[in-house]
């Protein structure tokens, strides 16, 4: 399996998978969908990966490039456990290639003892990074999220292809914002606990894990606050897919199917902290994991979900990647 960092309960990919399914899992990590596609494309069908976990909008181009194969749905009967709301998405209307692993959103996480202001929006985040927390903030190391932050703050659709928007975004992020960034870090939870940043843009599940780490480090989790990005933010859904040329396709299907059993799924959920899209979620939680902590960082109300936007892959993506790279160069350069 080739997946995002720290994205499954270690029991589920380790001992338990071995004892229940007689499947030995090997897990490798990537940091962005682009990395995943590069690695798969570079080996053209012989990468050796079985399961990959791309984010929804990237699926059509992966199908087109022949990087993933059709799922054998007869091997995944547990797909019926998934809430129909999270199936048949635009990128794969018939779920021939993918099935929802979980979904999440983006916000930020900050230390209230270091940042005096009450923060609620992306604009607040940007202002704080450029002011009080300058040189002490981190942002997600993925181009759409990094640029999205500015688009959302300025009430522009983050899927915009308008040149003027992109130019304005580049101008601001590269020339004004980048120099204040301490790190481009997609998984800041541990480093937040070490005390490396006082404010960090983060995916909800990772921010939730930060609470655990902060407690371990002897800090006070109550000092930290999670903010869902506003006025708009992202809704992403990561999906299990089977890579083209997968050497162990059958075991891959078996494992995916197993992970879609509600109890297993909830176990996974309480580890990584992302909504796994099971049917009757609230009932399941009260039955299986009543003591789940920080549920408000996993489950969001309807009006919150309404503010979330799904990414669309457009030709502008190259430009966004370019902006991220230039920002990185700029962020690293001001001390030279």
């Amino acid at each position: 399996m080739y997946t995002w960092g720290d994205y499954n309960d270690p029991d589920l990919v380790g001992a338990l998978a071995g004892s229940t399914l007689n499947v030995t899992m090997k897990v490798d990590y990537y940091a962005s969908n682009e990395d995943l596609i590069t690695k798969l494309a570079a080996s053209a069908g012989s990468s050796g990966f079985d399961i990959v976990v791309p984010t929804g909008p990237y699926i059509p181009q992966m199908i087109e490039k022949g990087l993933i194969q059709k799922l054998d749905k007869t091997l995944i009967p547990n797909m019926i456990n998934v809430d129909p709301n999270y199936l048949a998405q635009a990128w794969d209307p018939t779920n021939d290639y993918s099935v929802c692993k979980n979904w999440g959103t983006t916000g930020y996480f900050y230390d209230t003892t270091k940042i005096s202001k009450e923060l609620t929006t992306w604009q607040d985040f940007i202002d704080t990074c450029m002011g009080e927390a300058s040189g002490n903030c981190s942002v997600i190391d993925a181009a759409p999220n990094y640029c999205g932050m500015w688009f959302w703050a300025n009430k522009i659709n983050w899927n915009t292809e308008t040149k003027a928007d992109l130019d304005a975004c580049e101008k601001f992020l590269v020339e004004e914002f980048a120099q204040h960034i301490k790190a481009f870090d997609s998984y800041p939870s541990t480093k937040l606990a070490e005390g490396a940043y006082s404010i960090a843009m983060a995916w909800n599940g990772d921010a939730r894990q930060a609470y655990v780490r902060i407690e371990e480090a002897g800090g006070n989790p109550a000092d930290w606050k999670w903010v869902l990005g506003a006025p708009n933010t992202e809704l992403w859904m990561d999906n299990y897919c089977v890579a083209a040329g997968a050497p162990n396709a059958e075991a891959a299907h078996a494992w995916i199917n197993w992970d879609l059993i509600p109890e297993i799924s909830i176990k996974d959920l309480s580890y990584h902290g992302y909504h796994t899209g099971m049917k009757n979620m609230s009932q399941l939680i009260s039955e299986v994991a009543p003591d789940l902590v920080k549920g408000d960082m996993i489950f969001f109300g309807d009006e919150q979900v309404a503010t979330m936007q799904t990414q669309v892959i457009t030709p502008a993506l190259d430009r966004l990647i370019d902006i991220l790279n230039k920002s990185k160069a700029k962020a690293g350069a001001d001390l030279a």
């Binding site: 790279n325 990185k328 690293g332």
Partner: peptide, 21 residues
């Protein structure tokens, strides 16, 4: 290194993995 301690080695590698340039 974070953003400020970026070195050229990491930058080169990212051109081949992420940025595809």
């Amino acid at each position: 290194g974070g953003a400020k301690g970026n070195m050229i080695g990491a930058m080169i590698a990212s051109q081949f993995s992420g940025a595809q340039n």
